[in-house]
Lab assay of single mutants.
Amino acid sequence: MTFKLIINGKTLKGETTTEAVDAATAEKVFKQYANDNGLDGEWTYDDATKTFTITE
């Protein structure tokens, strides 16, 4: 399955995708991506669209 991450950061904005077997796996990938890029914010997830959002 394809999951999307929408980034609404103070300095970084955009989106990225990952292929994962489930939402929990995708969340780990996206949280590592956010950590690697210095993002810290509030996370939301929409199961209907398989989309995570981080807002700083």
Rank of each mutant, 00 (worst) to 15 (best):
K4P: 01
T11R: 09
Y45K: 01
G41Q: 02
A24P: 07
A20E: 04
K4M: 09
D22H: 04
T51W: 03
T11M: 13
T11L: 12
N37P: 01
V29K: 10
W43S: 01
K50G: 05
K31Q: 08
K10H: 11
D22C: 04
T55K: 05
L12M: 14
F30Q: 00
K28Y: 11
G9K: 08
K4V: 10
T44A: 10
G41D: 02
A20L: 03
N8D: 09
M1C: 08
K31C: 05
Q32G: 06
F30T: 00
T49W: 04
L5Q: 00
L39G: 02
E15D: 07
N37D: 03
K28E: 10
M1T: 15
E56N: 06
T53Q: 05
F3R: 00
V29C: 06
A24M: 14
L39P: 02
K10F: 13
T2F: 13
E42N: 10
Y33N: 02
A48P: 10
D36C: 07
G41E: 01
G9A: 07
L39T: 03
D47W: 09
K4E: 03
T44F: 11
T16W: 15
D36A: 15
V21Y: 15
V21L: 12
T55I: 07
K13H: 12
F3N: 00
D22G: 04
D40F: 13
V21N: 10
T2L: 13
A23K: 14
T51D: 01
I6N: 05
K50H: 12
T18W: 06
G14W: 15
T17G: 04
A20S: 08
T53F: 11
D46S: 06
E15G: 07
Q32N: 10
N35D: 10
A48G: 09
N37Q: 13
A23L: 06
A20N: 03
T53E: 05
W43I: 05
A48S: 11
N8K: 12
A23D: 04
G38L: 08
E56W: 12
D40A: 14
T16V: 14
Y45S: 01
T49H: 08
K10R: 14
A23G: 05
Y33M: 04
K50I: 03
K31T: 05
N37F: 09
T25K: 06
G14K: 12
E27I: 12
T49N: 12
G9D: 04
K10C: 13
G14M: 15
T25I: 08
F30S: 00
E42D: 13
T51I: 06
L39H: 05
K4Q: 05
T2Q: 12
N37S: 08
L5N: 01
A48F: 12
T18N: 03
T25L: 08
I6Y: 06
Y33T: 03
T53L: 05
N8I: 15
V21D: 10
I7Q: 02
E27H: 12
D46R: 03
K28T: 09
A23V: 12
I54Y: 03
V29T: 13
N35M: 15
A20R: 03
I54A: 02
T44I: 08
A24Y: 12
D36I: 09
E15W: 12
T17F: 15
L5D: 00
V21S: 12
A48K: 10
D47I: 09
T53S: 06
Y45Q: 01
D47C: 06
D22Y: 03
Y33I: 07
I54G: 01
K50E: 03
F52A: 01
I7R: 02
V29A: 07
Q32A: 13
F52S: 00
N8A: 09
L5V: 03
N35Y: 15
N35W: 13
T17Y: 14
E19S: 10
D40Y: 14
A24H: 08
L39S: 02
Y33Q: 03
A24F: 15
D36T: 09
L5Y: 01
E42K: 13
L12I: 14
D40V: 14
T11E: 08
K13P: 06
N8P: 03
